[in-house]
Amino acid sequence: MDRHRRQALKSGGGLSLVALLAAAGWIDPAAAATEAWNSAAFQTHDMDTTLKALGDGKPVPSTNVVFFSTPDIAENGAVVPIGITSKVPGTESIAILVAKNPNMLAALFELPPGTEPSITTRVKMRETSDVYALVKAGGNYYMTSKEIKVTLGGCGG
């Protein structure tokens, strides 16, 4: 997270003010987004640099971070359903990391208070890989992982 963004977070009292204003149509959303998108974090290839770019946390393995509606085998790597729930009190964000993807970080969800710490989405996986769910809560990081096998599936395009 760059400094700009951190300031924006602060001035928004935990919310991204820039994004808030953008979505409300008060400022140019494109400008807001380039400011808020953490480009460094989306260009990393290993866990250490990814964690560093995300705020330099040292995640501990946690059974309070749980995958749901996430298959063991994906018939097609282009669309792999992922569901993550955190039972860690004060969860602020949930990130999805795919170890063997060209870039490790797939998505980061920031959840203000009042939003349930649970999300589902779909990601691409280049190959069979460990997938990590990284949760930030109270300044600490918690993590769990799951291997998802990817089969390329048949002909028929």
């Binding site: 919310l15 991204s16 994004a19 808030l20 953008a22 979505a23 409300a24 959303p29 808020a36 998108w37 953490n38 974090a41 989306f42 282009a78 669309v79 792999v80 795919v98 993807n101 870039n103 970080l105 797939a106 998505a107 980061l108 969800f109 920031e110 959840l111 203000p112 009042g114 939003t115 349930e116 649970s118 999300i119 589902t120 989405t121 779909r122 990601v123 691409k124 996986m125």
Partner: peptide, 28 residues
């Protein structure tokens, strides 16, 4: 960015690994 009325309830940053025609669900 997702707003509930005027209050922000979710802010996501995505990379290229989110699938084509993205789907997302959550609750507030």
């Amino acid at each position: 960015t997702v707003l509930h009325n005027d209050k922000r309830v979710l802010y996501a940053q995505w990379g290229t690994a989110v699938s084509k025609n993205p789907f997302m669900s959550f609750r507030f």
